[in-house]
Amino acid sequence: MATGNETKVHLAREHALELLQQMILIRRFEEKCAELYSAEKIRGFLHLYIGEEANAVGVMQALGPDDAIVATYREHGHALARGLPAGEIMAEMFGKASGSSRGRGGSMHIFDARHRFYGGNAIVGGGLPLAVGLALADKMQGNNRVTCCFFGEGAAAEGEFHEALNLASLWDLPVLFICENNGYAMGTALERSESNPDISQHAAAYSIASEAVDGMNVVEVEAAARRAVDAIRAGKGPWFLENKTYRFRAHSMFDAELYRDKAEVEKWKKIGPVIRFSEWLLETGMIHQTDIDSIEREVAQTIDDAVAFAEQAPWEPVEDLTRDVMTPPAREEVRP
């Protein structure tokens, strides 16, 4: 398994196990979400991150607790990798008051101030200007912090993508743009939506340093993210990574997947981030099957606990319907 081309991540056993554990946690968590969706515990839109785990896990290794994250509606994995409690994420999807966003957001809108996790944005491209603004605030206040913005390749067709890249570069802001290129904007293949499907070239057009990364390889993603974050912290302005990845599941639970071949999905599954990393670690002898078994047991327990937490969590009373529209002491609407 190839590691990053310049900065090789020194892969200690403990760290390897940590990466594997986080990816397996996301994988099993998402599988459980699909199951709970069928059981009608989770409703609305549900977008699973299965197949893309290496991206959130790899990138988060490079970020510190003071850095900020802006994510998309496919953000369970990012929330878990950032360290948000699995129970609160699950409770959010149940729509319960103990959820990350008091149940007001659901699967697409997970927020957590403690982790500087700014959602959960379900407008494609909408998070990019927000990330630019967070970075602008840091620059104006003299904070040496990074704002990391995740989005899919579909966002590259939005005006906000271009406006945000231009602003970040023009104002030299500490933003790490992570394009998770999974090949499809819902059902539209990249080649069918972009005149130039090489997304990293879009960044170059705005004079932003960019790199294309194997988004199925957690070690490579981490190495690239560390290079990027180091450069940003050194004051070299924004940085852009295009992580080439793939989602194994449908876009959402309503997607019949008429737009791609099963064979294509199977081909990508063979190079899936979990299977590839674990097989490589086993081959090199860095870990043993018992380590994986132990991770699986721990993860199963974490997910059982998360589901139990969500099941037992209270619903918000209907009397509180209009709370959190305005900041209290709210000037109440004069009448309903």
């Binding site: 900020a68 200007p129 927000l130 603004g133 967070l134 406006e163």
Partner: peptide, 26 residues
């Protein structure tokens, strides 16, 4: 220039950046 900040013609971009800056303590 930092506090009287000319923005490019990017209404969505700089309004969104304003929202982000507000979140970031400005």
């Amino acid at each position: 220039e930092a506090r009287i900040r000319d923005a490019p013609l990017s209404e969505s971009g700089f309004t969104g950046a304003g929202i982000g800056a507000a979140l970031g303590g400005m």
